[in-house]
Nucleic acid binder design. Structure first.
Length: 824
RNA sequence: GCCGAAGUGGCGGAAUAGGCAGACGCGACAGUCUCAAAAACUGUUGGGGGGCAACCUCCAUGUCGGUUCGAGCCCGACCUUCGGCACCA
């Protein structure tokens, strides 16, 4: 009759599945709870990091279920993506086969966790009944005017003739062949996420970590400033101005040069013949740099003079136009007015190329001397015409107003956030449902023709084009409008598209009349608790929020935010590094599950430390949890025998207690534990929740040994232990619940409630200090008054020795805590 | 460089409306059981000093200051580690 996790876990998992115990239904008599864990990518093996993400969130969901909520806690697979295609290229296995094999294995491993996933609701993003709706959302966003085509650079490996993802570019070189990567412009699809920039910066009504909200706000990068026009008069150039964005219009009189991004369309037009060779060489070089390199602070800023000039309208000054790659086309206007005296980058650049540095904001006590470094703080405006003498903060407004009045500029807001580029020159993704017709132009595929199926037999070896381009049966089609021969879009969608709406699909995973059943979505959404790694702090969470806001404005859903509460668990690392297949430090949980049981692995992962913290994987402590589970097994199953008659009397004397007080103590411990465990789960403090359960079971062992209380009271305490432990260790508690004569299933039992009156201590320990140093502890009734407490403290012999010969200056009393006698 | 979080026994970690530092567990040591070992169980376990003894006493939460009757917790400076962002005009 030993605890055999292998046997009981399989037994119960089969029984739960057969009985559909965790089948989810919409029960309008109950409040709903949508608990979502980020679905895994189909990498092939579930490692201990996945367990760390899944097991604790399952515990929380089970807890909510016992509390009487109708709970949706689904699972699925993020199944499109680059690794499948890489595996295909490397090993000649089709991405579909590779992905589905991995899913089969991961599903088996996921089932061993013993979670309440309703597998009937599984979602797999690479299957047509799912990506059909991903395509549908694309069309909806098109209709809403949120999709557009534009040229954008991609990483290009000239040797492999292929587009590379950022992660395939290592130090500016192709990870496969080491060739230097260049940027190449392609016509691609974008979503206008910037339209929602301001709303995305807010997190109204969201219970999210402050950290993540800050990161998202930084990602939007809103900055208020002024767009200023500089007069341009260049032979043969139609443009008569260059506009720059600045947050420091107060420094306008200190502009000594201007810098354009190398990609800026004016660079080519403005460059004078004698400068042409140098400028072109510079542009060519910058094409080779990744954005990371260009933006690196390590790199010395460099650039070249174009030979052209603009006029600063405020002082009529003619300033040279340079081009330098520290200016990005994607931010602001792609042009910067350089004020070397008051900007660190401009200062370094001016020094390097001997450009003038002119002070227009005087630091406190400035005597007209040259600056050793840029002065970026506020100060007094000098050498600034009619603005001289003004404090620079006021100058910002004053100059802007003047600019607006004169028509030289306007106040504006600039965002770091860029529109979402969703085109991927890949095979393994959802097709973009667009047809290019020579007569009608860009034609969306009609909704009734969805899904545009991904052809099975495409050639996905790198060719320099999207793999689908060479799949003629796919490419060649007819225009849905005029029926003339036309061609399909051959790029596929970013996989973040798939994960931007999967939480909606779970509400009605088999609904085939739409992406989701509005009634079901109304019932389940938004997600009440979303858990996952912090690495998705920006991209995934941001895109999903954008999606919801966009479809809300279409009237498809009635809520503003998809995830009400967000919790990020930490990362489990191994050998001081993140676990990954390529590093070969992946810890497979299967061995622990076979040897010690899923319940032990679940509990151990939660016991390790705070969930948000993660940490080094170290199995040296797992035996402690395993032993604990063994002890619970025998604690519950080995018979309880209360002492009777003379031997009871003897025992009471031995323990120095009474029957009544032992019963009261047991009740109190039970109710205190219910409260502690309930509150800890709610606060997601699983490690201390487990510690409280350990303490309680240790206490119950002592109670059992004393054998003073009635068997019925003993049973009640044991039942409570099992109920409190049920979310954490679902299998062993189910087994013990059955063996102690209860009816199936423990997981359908209500969560225990505590009685505040029973939680209260009758006696408390007062700490007595003298001058803040602990001198004695006294046990007193909880109802003690201040006067009594002071007196008892002063009566303490231990305290008296420290008071001898001194004057009492003050006595501090903190109710139920301490008495501090201050002496001099 | 900037932003954020964190530094507590041999180890993972408890403890914040400022109030008993080290819960719970691992490891270690000792004991019980055993021919022996493993497992299990029981006990001890932050450091120094003192006492035959139940005990007494001093020092201890990265470092140095400060506020307070009282600081792991608050304030200032510094050191270290880990995350995130990175020329944003």
């Amino acid at each position: 009759m030993k605890y055999n996790p292998q046997e009981i876990e399989q037994k119960w998992q089969q029984r739960w599945a057969a009985d559909k115990l965790y089948e989810v239904t919409e029960d309008n008599g109950k409040p709903k709870w949508y608990a979502l864990t980020m679905f895994p990518y189909t990498s092939g093996d579930l490692h201990i990091g996945h367990w760390y993400a899944m097991a604790p969130s399952d515990v929380h969901a089970r807890f909510k279920r016992m509390q009487g909520y109708s709970v949706l806690h689904p699972m699925g697979f993020d199944a499109f993506g680059l690794p499948a295609e890489n595996a295909a290229i490397k090993r000649g296995i089709h991405p579909f086969t590779w992905t589905m094999q991995n899913i089969a294995n991961m599903r088996r491993q996921l089932k061993s966790i013993g979670a309440i996933y309703d597998w009937g609701r599984e979602v797999v993003t690479c299957l047509p009944d799912y990506y059909r709706w991903t395509e549908w959302f694309f069309l909806k966003l098109c209709q809403a005017g949120l999709a557009y085509r534009a040229k954008a650079p991609v990483n290009w490996c000239p040797r492999c003739q292929t587009v590379l993802a950022n992660e395939q570019v290592v130090d500016g070189n192709c990870e496969r062949c080491g060739t230097a990567v260049i940027h190449r412009d392609l016509e691609q699809w974008f979503f206008r996420i910037t339209k929602y920039a301001d709303e995305l910066m807010e997190h109204k009504g969201l219970d999210w970590p402050e950290r993540i909200k800050t990161m998202q706000r930084n990602w939007v990068g809103r900055s208020e400033g002024t767009e200023i026009s500089f007069a341009l008069d260049h032979p043969g150039v139609a443009e008569k101005e260059i506009r720059v964005f600045t947050t420091r219009p107060d420094t306008i009189f200190g502009v000594t040069f201007m810098v354009l991004a190398p990609e800026h369309p004016l660079v080519e037009k403005l460059t004078t013949p004698e400068r042409k060779a140098e400028v072109e060489a510079y542009i060519y070089r910058s094409r080779h740099e990744t954005e990371i390199q260009r933006l690196s602070t390590e790199k010395e800023k460099d650039g070249v003079f174009t030979g052209a000039y603009v006029i600063n309208r405020l002082n009529g000054r003619r300033v040279p136009i340079w081009t330098a790659d520290y200016v990005l086309l994607s931010y602001g206007t792609g042009a910067v007015m350089a004020v070397p005296a008051h900007d660190t980058r401009d200062f370094a650049f001016a020094r390097k190329y001997s450009l003038p540095i002119e002070v227009v904001i005087a630091p406190p006590g400035w005597q007209g001397e040259e600056l050793a470094e840029a002065y970026t703080e506020p100060g007094t405006m000098v050498n600034s015409g009619q603005f001289s003498g003004l404090p620079s903060q006021q100058g910002v407004t004053a100059v802007s107003e003047f600019m607006e009045k004169m028509g030289y500029g306007k106040r504006t807001v600039s965002y770091k956030l860029r529109d979402w580029l969703i085109s991927r020159q890949r095979y393994w993704g959802a097709p973009i449902p667009i047809i290019y017709c020579p007569k009608c132009g860009i034609v969306p595929v009609p909704e009734k023709d969805l899904p545009v199926l991904l052809p099975e037999n495409a050639e996905f070896r790198p060719t320099g084009e999207s793999p689908l381009k060479y799949c003629e049966p796919f490419v060649n089609t007819r225009c849905p409008v005029c029926a003339s021969p036309a061609k399909r879009e051959t790029d596929t969608m970013d996989t973040f598209m798939c994960s931007s709406w999967y939480f909606l699909r779970y509400a009605s995973p088999h609904f085939d009349a739409a992406a989701f059943d509005p009634e079901k979505v109304k019932y389940w959404l938004p997600v009440d608790l979303y858990t996952g790694g912090a690495e998705h702090a920006v991209m995934h969470l941001f895109y999903a929020r954008f999606f919801v806001k966009a479809i809300r404005d279409m009237g498809l859903v009635a809520f503003d935010e998809p995830f009400t509460r967000l919790f990020n668990q930490g990362t489990i690392i191994a050998e001081h590094q993140k676990m990954s297949k390529s590093r070969g430090n992946v810890i497979n949980p299967d061995q622990y599950v076979v040897e010690l049981g899923a319940d032990v692995v679940r509990a151990y992962l939660m016991f390790l430390g705070p969930w948000e913290q993660g940490g080094e994987w170290d199995d040296s402590g797992i035996s402690g949890v395993s032993r604990w589970m063994d002890r619970i097994w025998s604690l519950v199953l080995e018979p309880y025998q209360m002492k009777m008659g003379a031997s009871l009397t003897e025992r009471l004397v031995e323990c120095g207690t009474t029957y009544e007080s032992t019963c009261r103590d047991l009740k109190r411990a039970t109710h205190q534990t219910i409260r502690k465990v309930t509150e800890d789960i709610e606060k997601i403090k699983f490690n201390t929740m487990i510690a409280a359960l350990m303490e309680y079971s240790n206490y119950l062992s002592r109670v059992k040994e004393m054998a003073i209380v009635e068997e019925s009271e003993w049973r009640e305490a044991v039942d409570t232990l099992l109920l409190l432990l049920a979310p954490t260790a679902p299998h062993v508690t189910e087994e013990l619940w059955e063996r102690t004569g209860h009816s199936y299933s423990i997981h359908n039992q209500p969560w225990p409630k505590w009685d505040e009156a029973l939680v209260k201590e009758e006696e408390i320990t007062l700490v007595v200090q003298v001058n803040g140093k602990l001198r004695d502890r006294i046990t007193v009734p909880a109802s003690i008054t201040e006067a009594e407490a002071r007196q008892l403290a002063l009566d303490s012999p231990k305290v008296k020795t420290h008071l001898a010969g001194k004057d009492i200056a003050n006595i501090i009393y903190v109710p139920k805590r301490l008495v501090n006698v201050v002496v001099r």
